[in-house]
Each structure stands twice: as C-alpha cells, then as structure tokens.
Design a protein around this nucleic acid. Structure first.
Length: 590
RNA sequence: GAUCCCAUAGCUCAGCUGGAUAGAGCAACUGCCUUCUAAGCAGUAGGUCACAGGUUCGAAUCCUGUUGGGAUCGCCA
C-alpha cells in the first residue's frame, strides 16, 4: 500500500475527468506531476504540484494555477480518505489524510512481507552484471564497492518485483590470463622444490598463487616442468583461472554475494562446438553496414608515441551516439576487448534481456557510450543498457590514507577489510553514498566510533524495536504479538504527534523503494532507513520526560497493544530495508 | 585537444528526477541516564549551493560557458 501512488492515481483520474469535460485539453501527459511529502510537515501529509505543472495547458479554462488548484482541491476534498485539501502558495495543493488511512498503512505493513513492494509489479527480466573482476588475483576495495552496489541494486529490483539475473563476466581471454598462467607456473616450479628467487617484473608476485602452484605440483608431479610453454600454458591457465575464481567466489560469499551466472569471455570465441560468436556478430554487423574497414583520425592533443595510421575494422558507433568509431580487431589479428563485449551483450539480448545494467569502476567511464551504442546496434534499438559507474574508494585509517603497494606488501584486499570491520559495516558504508561520488572509507571509524557510525545507528533502531516487544511481553505475559492479532489493535489510540510522525515515515517506505528502484540508486534506501531510525530514537527519548508516551504502559493494555503494533511494523520496515541492502537486522546489540 | 564524473556548513555527505524558509552526522558550545538499551535524545552556532549567464510562475537541481579536482582517450582489460 503506497498512499502517494494512490493519491497520484486519484488526482490523475480527476484531471482525466476535466479532460473528458473539455475543461482541460486532450493529450495532457498525466505523469508529469508529483505527489510528495511537503517540506514543512505542518502543511499536511501530502502535497502536489499538479495545478502548477498544467497551468500553461489549462490556460483557456483556468486562468491561473491557483484556479485549477482550487477545482482539484474541491474534488479531492470529497475523497473519503482526504480530510482536508487546500491551495497554498503559487498553486500547491496540501492534502491532509484521515487518520484511518495511516491505520490502514500499519495494518498493511503487518499483513505480510509484501509491504514496500509496488502494487503493480513490473516483472520484466533484468540482467545486472557486477564485480566482473579479472581472475588474476584477490579483489581490492574498489571491486568491493561495485560488488556491494550491484548486489544491493539487484536486491532492490527483485524486491520491487523484477525478475533479476545476477551475472559475472569472467575476463578469461586476454593477455592478462597468460601472465597469470606464467606466474602460476613459476609457483608450480617453486612447489617442486626449485628456487625461483625474485618474481620477475611483469608477472604477478602475490603469495596467493602459491596454493595453485602447490596444487599443480600435486596433480601433475614434475610432468609439466620440461615441456615447452605452448603445451603447458592452456592447462595451467585454465587451472589458475579456476583457482582465482574459487578465491573470488569465496570472498564474495563472505559478503553474502552470489551470482547466478558466471559468463566466460573465452566461451565467446571457443564455444562448446568451437563456434566463434564474436566473428558471427562482426559479420552480422558488417552485413548490415554497421562494421566497415577504414581509417581512424589520431586522438587530438597528446599523440601516442607509436601512432601509425592504419586501416582497421571499425564499428560505426557514431551512428548510435558515440564520439568516434571503435576498432574491433587488433593489429595482431585478435579481437579487441570491445569486440568480445559486443558479442557478450548480444548474448544477454539473445537470452531475453531487453533491460541490462552493468556496474563498472569509474575508470571505465570512457567506455559507456560505445557499449550503449553496441547494445542498440545488436538489438535493433530494442534493448537498453544502463551503466552505473562506481567512483573510487579512498581507504583511510584514523583520517590518514592507507598506502597501498603490491610490491611492498601493504596491499589491502577486500577480504582484509571485511575480516577487520565485518560485512554489515562494509556493506552499509558503501551504500551510504551515491555511487558516482568518491567514497572515503575509514577503517578505524567504522568500528571504533559507533556514534559516528550509521550502520549501528540503524541496526540499533531495529534492536530497540525488538526490545520494546520483549518488554511488552514481560509486562503483559499473555500479549499476543503475532501480526494477525496486532492488526486488530485500536490504532485510533495513537494520537501523539511523534506516533503520527512515525506512521507517516512508515507510509513513505513504498515510495522510497519505488524511487530508488526507478533511479537504480540503492543508497536512497540506506538514507531512508537512517531517517526512520532518527525518528524512532527521537520519539523514544520523549518517553523520558513524558512517561505516558512510552511504548509499554503497564496500566493500558489496549494502548500498549496499539503501540507495539506500530513498533512491530517498524521492525518489519527496518528488516525489509536492511534486507535490500544485505545488512543484518539484529534483535539485540549487547 | 576530447569525453565522462564531481564541486552544497570547518570536515564527511544527503537533498526524493524543477517546488514552499537548503538538511543530517562529525568537530565546537549548553543540557538530559534510580524510568522500555545514553551505540540514544533536545538545543545553540555554522551557507553567496565553485563562478557567470540562460530557460521557467519557480533552479542546488535543467542548458551554455568559465574555474578547480578526479577518471579515460586506436592495438591493455
């Protein structure tokens, strides 16, 4: 139950009535106005700008926004849920709802777990691709941000009804996995007892490859050692990639992140029957005139040292909104990463996804236009791709940047951070920020200074609610706190302004979910929960000076029932919201 | 040279897709624990929303330009 959406619908119907009467012109876009909580709560429960939005089109029939607003307000006042509708300022309509509406909201929130989900579900499939870290080593904190963001976004979309597939693209085809193979081979020789000395420049020096080397030694003995590279490389490469992916999967699992699909880049050029999907896409696009052979102008400004004018195979991305056409085939004859990526996204389209979201690091920002161009091209303009860029994470400790160097061994992995501060703190902190703003993550503050820490603030609010329910049961031993019974409580007893405020906040949950899902911005849920927690703590403390406001009142069983019902509703909203973020909602925090 | 992102209180950040008097937290100052968890609350102070134009009944929000910071710029991924 979303009171904002319902009022939006009703106002839409009123406008439609005016159109049918000829008082408003036909063809008005009825989705342009909004219904939102007014900035100043004394103005009412809801406000709409409808009259101002349509003032211009309403001109002949209504001479001013206020005149249209007056007509709308008059009709709205007849709605059984509306207590008062008045025109204010330049043409706002401030609406006060009957208290029974908020009682309905509380009952709805208690009835089942669907509270917060939209009434009309959009059940179309959506593919969310995130993490996709190269399988060449452990994930760092930057990967973690994309991982948490993508996971929460997937949760959010699933919560609002979408059919979500979580996908990971394994970059197992480039030169970097050959480097990985050579690095693992060195560790293999080491495991056989050879002294390998310093890891040569250009190979991965990390200790994390030692287990893979040891496992290779165990599986193959010395059999690989004296073979030429061409013979052992594919085998060692596949083995090392598996080992790295296993490590990555384990680290993701430690953050409660699980993907349904792991898609191998290599499988694009080497399908099960040896088919080459990249070539197929290129040929298809060539046949349609979207791929051609031509020259590219050198980039302006700083010219690369090794620039030479060359004829190459190009994708006509400028036809689809990109700045320049993009090469598909490298000078050595291999496919560019972009070529593979076109085939990859075509695979998503072929698998039925017209709606795709990719979560990338900010360093890939320059890649967005061409990928969107490619999606348009391979889907005939049908499919859409939204790319969410996650900005950098600045890792700090007590206000000092943590220096990271793989060579010096001071590299901090994502796993290190999770182990140090816990999953909940990592996830919440990464979501308590817009994805396109850089994030300062202070390891010390996140655990030490709990006052400064929004994670605990919100979790504490949930625990407090749970505590109230425990207290109520301690006082009224036979109090039935099941949702079914609490729904029958007398909500008209909740007359205090703090209680009303909490009910209004609860009523906003579905709206916040809607907005966050539509904008692909899970951080809005985190901020909403923080606000909700603030309202709860504030009301709670009023009970100090005014004991009659405490949730549990030993002399008033009926009142306690109604308040516990509201508190129970709060626990559900906190639990649902935190669930979307993938953060736990503890019953107590001792 | 081009593209993308960012610029809001001393610091870290929100600002609900253009609405009414711009909000939190931290830091500073003043209060509140014999009472449901003080990991909390109430209050004071702090702003030319980088700058200049434009669109609009109305702009922190949209457009153009400028400045500053970050990222990227045929064959890496």
């Amino acid at each position: 139950m979303n009171v904002f959406a319902e009022l939006q619908d009703r106002i839409g119907l009123i406008l439609k009535g005016l159109i049918d009467n000829g008082q408003l012109p036909a063809g008005l876009d009825l989705s342009r106005f909004v219904v939102e909580p007014p900035r100043d709560p004394s103005h009412g429960d809801l406000a709409t700008n409808a009259a101002m939005v349509y003032a211009k089109e309403a001109k002949p029939g209504f001479s001013s926004p206020r005149e249209l607003a007056t007509t709308l307000a008059y009709t709205l006042a007849g709605d059984p849920d509306v207590d008062q509708a008045e025109v204010a300022g330049p043409g706002f309509i401030n609406i006060r709802l009957h208290p029974h509406v908020f009682a309905d909201v509380l009952r709805a929130s208690l009835s089942d777990d669907s509270y917060g989900r939209p009434a009309v579900r959009d059940e179309r499939a959506v593919n969310v691709e995130y993490v996709s870290a190269n399988p060449t080593g452990p994930m760092h904190v930057g990967h973690g941000r994309g991982a948490v963001f993508g996971d929460a976004l997937a949760n959010l979309l699933a919560f609002s009804g979408r059919k979500v597939t979580r996908e990971y693209y394994i970059n197992d085809a480039g030169a970097q996995v050959d480097v990985l193979a050579r690095s693992a081979f060195l560790r293999y020789r080491e495991a056989l007892g050879e002294s390998i000395g310093e890891i040569p420049e250009g190979l991965y020096p990390g200790d994390y490859l030692k287990p893979a080397g040891a496992a290779l030694a165990k599986a193959h003995g010395a059999a690989l050692r004296d073979k030429p590279e061409a013979e052992w490389l594919p085998l060692v490469r596949a083995f090392a990639i598996d080992a790295m992916m296993e490590m990555i999967r384990t680290d993701l699992a430690a953050m409660n992140i699980r993907h349904e699909v792991f898609f191998s880049e290599r499988s694009l050029t080497q399908g099960d029957a040896g088919e080459d999907h990249v070539r197929a896409v290129i040929e298809d696009l060539r046949a349609r005139g979207i791929v051609y052979v031509g020259h590219l102008a050198p980039p302006k400004g700083q010219l690369p040292d090794d620039w030479e004018d060359r004829e190459q195979t190009l994708f006509r991305s400028t036809d689809f909104g990109d700045d320049v056409d993009r090469p598909l085939i490298k000078s050595d004859g291999g496919y560019t990463y972009f070529a593979s990526d076109i085939a990859y996204h075509k695979s998503k389209v072929d698998r039925g996804f017209d709606d795709m979201i990719d979560v990338w690091g900010a360093d890939h920002g320059g890649y967005v236009k061409r990928m969107q161009a490619a999606v348009k091209a391979v889907s005939g303009g049908r499919a859409s791709l939204d790319v969410k860029l996650c900005q950098l994470v600045k890792l700090m400790r007590n206000g000092e940047p943590v220096t990271m160097s793989k060579r010096a061994g001071t590299f901090v992995t994502l796993r290190d951070v999770v182990d140090e501060v816990g999953v909940d703190a990592v996830r919440f902190m990464m979501l308590f920020r817009k994805n396109d703003a850089t994030l300062e993550f202070d390891l010390a503050k996140v655990i030490e200074q709990s006052r400064e820490n929004p994670v605990f603030y919100v979790q504490y609010a949930h625990a407090r609610c749970k505590s109230v329910i425990r207290q109520a049961k301690a006082v009224f031993a036979d109090l039935d706190t099941s949702a079914a019974t609490l729904s029958t409580a007398d909500f008209t007893l909740l007359t205090d302004e703090g209680e009303a405020g909490l009910a209004k906040m609860i009523a906003q949950f579905p709206r916040q979910i809607d907005a966050a899902a539509a904008a692909h911005e899970p951080h809005r849920v985190a901020f909403y929960l923080h606000d909700l927690a603030s309202s709860l703590h504030s009301h709670w403390n009023r009970g100090k000076d005014q004991p009659h406001l405490r949730f549990v009142n030993e002399e008033r069983r009926d009142l306690t029932s109604a308040r516990v019902a509201m508190v129970s509703s709060l626990t559900r909203v906190f639990a649902s919201g935190l669930g979307v973020l993938g953060v736990s909602a503890p019953d107590e925090m001792r």
